[in-house]
Amino acid sequence: MNYFILNIALALTWAMLIGDIHPVSLFTGFVIGYLILFTARRALGPSPYFGKVSRVIRFAFFFLWELIKSNLRVARDVLTRTDYMKPRIIAVPLDAKTDAEITLLANLISLTPGSLSLDVSTDRRTIYVHVMYAENAESVRREIKEGLERWVLDLLATEKE
């Protein structure tokens, strides 16, 4: 977090030097500040901050791609016949423990291909998902666990360091 504050300070400095504090100049300042910090990372000592930012960016792209895929699929199915859908309600065991992890995972499940999170069990060990196309419940379970949940755990695990 230390580096994050430093980065914001650099962004502010940049905006002040430019002469106007404006979202665009702040953003440019942030990017330049990040690059400066990244170049100086050896001198400043290692920090999870650098890894985290790149991970967040990669995650954003992964998520965007999933979102586009899911919407094209839903669009195709809405416009064509509906009788070959194979909906199921599937229980997926959770490895995510904290509130933040479960919330993020549930939201992401709702926004990605053909799945909608309905509820989390009271003891927080299972999430129930409504899936539109599930030939096989096991493979859907695996997809969620190895795709989204791994991303979420990765993303939030580094934050604690």
Partner: peptide, 10 residues
């Protein structure tokens, strides 16, 4: 649930 629903874990 729709009649084509395959399984219901809930």
């Amino acid at each position: 649930l729709w009649k084509g629903t395959l399984s219901d874990d809930l």
